[in-house]
Design a protein around this nucleic acid. Structure first.
Lengths: 177, 177
DNA sequence: ATCTAATATGCAACTTTTTGCATATTAGAT
DNA sequence: ATCTAATATGCAAAAAGTTGCATATTAGAT
């Protein structure tokens, strides 16, 4: 039950609407957490009922109204408690690897085409992460220190994506012989 | 819905009991797929109802009886169909990164201790994968060619775990300043 | 005017996964 | 004899996630 906590850490950094959070997950923290908008809105509702967060309706002149949520003291305490407890190692369920494992049941071309498609998507994620890194590196030292931990999570994304692409190249070379 | 397919690719390689499959997931394919035994037994039941797999009861003198499942023609066809279709890029939900992102809510020692614990677990996974790789590399060329695709998935595990450890070292160094 | 895309939120049904509980066999240790 | 650990399987309830559907606002294009 960690979508809850993923939402809370983001709200702890800055108040946001559900829509903002989803965009955050989609665009910047995809290597970190993924959630559909329906799931996010549901958790926001539950967190509001538990009084871990509150919201204010913000009317916008150029866009539909939105609810901007912020974390409460209760929420900050709950989040702190969770963060102080150990978390389980990450669970990996990778359908592409399942497919590759059983790749003899389809054509080599099909496998290579699918790999190429995934490669494109990983390349675009990496590019995006590198842009964010560049922005971070241009900050002054105080701000860099302030965002050090989020930056460390960004580094996980960058190193992880590079490793994925390295692996994909290896597979392409091996299968093309 | 890919646990189903993960089970099928394993059964397509060799007939196994539910217990074997779980051990497989736990010990060798943890970088590939993870599932609790209850979930595996449930899917085996459903796959049997759909006649994608069948089982024979094997009585063992030194251990409790077990059901050894094997894939049917119907199952092989279903698996082949699934493998020919594109799969979505992998979804990542990483609680450790959530924790690190909000790490200012706990102590640096706590963060470093947790990181060290995860590091140990990743080191042991990597060691395990490298042992399997060594076994693979000692096979003759025919066998190596036969297991090439599973070996590629193993490589994903090795490259991924090395990248994880590289990242963890970077975090340790950065936070220890 | 009408269509499209982006913004913004949400319910309901269904699937998948997790957690808790439960049982049974055999080997080996105390 | 009894306890422990490994082997082996499963049901039921709850939690988490996905898919389908639904609605409303505003900007900009046709």
């Amino acid at each position: 039950m960690s979508l809850k906590h993923a939402i809370l850490v983001l709200l702890e950094t800055e108040p946001s609407s559900g829509y903002d959070l989803v965009k955050h997950f989609k665009s910047r923290l995809g290597y970190f957490w993924n959630a559909k908008h329906q799931q996010v809105y549901l958790q926001l509702k539950k967190l509001t009922e538990d009084e871990w967060i509150t919201f204010k309706a913000h009317s916008q002149s150029n866009k539909p109204d939105k609810k901007v949520y912020e974390i409460t003291e209760l929420g900050r305490k709950g989040l702190g408690d969770w963060i102080s407890q150990p978390v389980k190692p990450n669970k990996i369920n990778d359908a592409l690897l399942v497919k590759l494992y059983g790749g003899h049941l389809t054509s080599k071309d099909n496998i290579l085409a699918e790999l190429a498609a995934h490669k494109k998507s990983h390349e675009s994620v990496l590019e995006n992460l590198l842009n964010i890194e560049n922005n971070y590196l241009e900050l002054n030292k105080d701000k860099q220190a302030h965002y050090l931990l989020p930056y460390m999570t960004l580094r996980r994304g960058i190193i992880g994506e590079k490793a994925w692409l390295e692996w994909a190249d290896e597979v392409e070379k091996t299968l093309s012989i």
